[in-house]
Design a protein around this nucleic acid. Structure first.
Length: 223
DNA sequence: GGGTGATCATTG
DNA sequence: CAATGATCACCC
């Protein structure tokens, strides 16, 4: 059965996570009487929510780490047969106003990625979700050159947001961290800084890690 | 609407 | 055919 309380230490979290390696999503879901969708067309976050339950993360939405008591964020990541990421990784919502004076050290990107429990899961679309296998979860921390790469991209993007250039930022900006739409649909609007410093309406955005970045994390671990 | 969990699907 | 831009479900 799934734990009903969060892990009280990183060791406990890792112990829980290691128990999941090798299981299929179907086996894990079945153990808790959870039904598995045929595909993820209408339940895109299903894998992540299943893993939250299986590891005892607090359900629901909160703007901080999944395991705030031990400072760890949980990220599932879909991989192909070679262990390479199949999708970019969502990090957090991007605030588009009141960004003057934002510092990397206190940014939500850095806070979210400080410590991450990565759970690679077979994401091949030609395999039904129920048969997709959970690989070996591992703990990773953001530091050194990887942090500098993200910081550089983040500062470039935040500068553009602060300068009122939100509409000229595309997903092509940023070597490893990119800004993309993040909303329920195309009609969602939020405040942003306009070209003359005024408030304008734009599509909500989120920060995402490019596959090259997460691919390196996976390669470093499994090398 | 803002935020969590992400993958989908159109297109360059 | 990978990547960008769009979208799905749920919570508050």
């Amino acid at each position: 059965m799934f734990p009903n309380s969060p892990p009280s230490s990183i060791d406990e979290l890792l112990q829980r996570a290691e128990q999941l390696a090798g299981l299929t999503l179907g086996e894990l879901a079945h153990s808790a009487n959870i039904r598995v969708p045929k595909d993820f067309k209408r339940e895109k976050g299903w894998s992540g929510q299943l893993l939250e339950l299986a590891l005892g993360a607090q359900a629901g939405s909160k703007a901080q780490q999944d395991f705030a008591n031990i400072g760890v964020e949980l990220k599932t990541i879909p991989i192909d047969a070679n262990g390479n990421p199949l999708e970019t990784t969502y990090v957090c919502y991007a605030h588009l106003t009141n960004v003057a004076g934002s510092q990397w050290q206190t940014s939500s990107v850095r806070n979210k990625l400080g410590k991450v429990l990565w759970v690679p899961i077979d994401g091949r679309r030609d395999i039904p979700p129920s048969e997709r296998c959970i690989a070996t979860p591992f703990l990773w921390s953001l530091h050194g050159q990887q942090e500098q790469y993200l910081r550089q991209d983040w500062e470039e993007i935040m500068d553009m947001i602060a300068m009122g250039e939100i509409e000229s930022i595309t997903a092509r900006h940023g070597e490893y961290l990119q800004l993309r739409p993040k909303a329920a649909n195309g009609s969602a609007l939020t405040d942003a800084i306009g070209q003359n410093g005024q408030i304008v309406q734009t599509r909500p955005r989120g920060f995402y890690l490019r596959k090259e970045f997460t691919g390196k994390i996976l390669a470093d671990y499994f090398a």
